[in-house]
Amino acid sequence: MSWKLFELLVQASLYTVLISFISITIGLAIGMVVSAAALSPSRALSVPGRTFVSFFRGVPLLVQLLLIYNLLPALGLNVPSVVAAITGLSLCTAAYQAENLRGGFQSVPRGLLEAADMAGLSAFQQFRRIRAPIALRLAFPSLVNEAIMILKASSLVSVVGIVELTRMAQDLAASTYRPIELFSAAGLLYLIINWLIASGGSLFERSFRWGRP
């Protein structure tokens, strides 16, 4: 395979990384709010929170992407298709991250919050200083897992016309008639990126200098 082809694949993989990174970050922020809502004692918050999770986990990502891609213009929002792609990926990963974080929140021992009560922290201060940081650390391994899932799932955004790594490999394979080489190279690039995410994740995890509560 020529160097030129490989360079095109690498460029497309950077696009894959960029779209995934933005989606995972937005998804984490939304996931945090959704899991807090799902765990809230108030039904007005917990029902929407849980509904969000069931919907975005229950509907295939491909269907979500096509729906959002067609829905946004129908609502009068003429946005570039990359926005539709990121919206779809973000909402989908938000649902999974919310579930992971919910597990994290539920594993925060009650006693730590009673100590916070006694120290005078308000409910919001407890969320910000105790519950969220501990839940994030507890959920961290599954969040890394989710990042890897999203990076792979980002190949689906080609259906809304984004030329990311998989789509680039497809296009190049069609024009050069060398599918095996191109898809092998694409696979290798996915593998390298995910290996980087996984090792970055465990490096970061080891820097949490604390035992499990």
Partner: peptide, 20 residues
Amino acid sequence: IRAVRSQIGMVFQQFNLWPH
């Protein structure tokens, strides 16, 4: 409740230190 409770400190059997 927080204002009145601020007069009390509590020590638990399981320590309940914040691990992070």
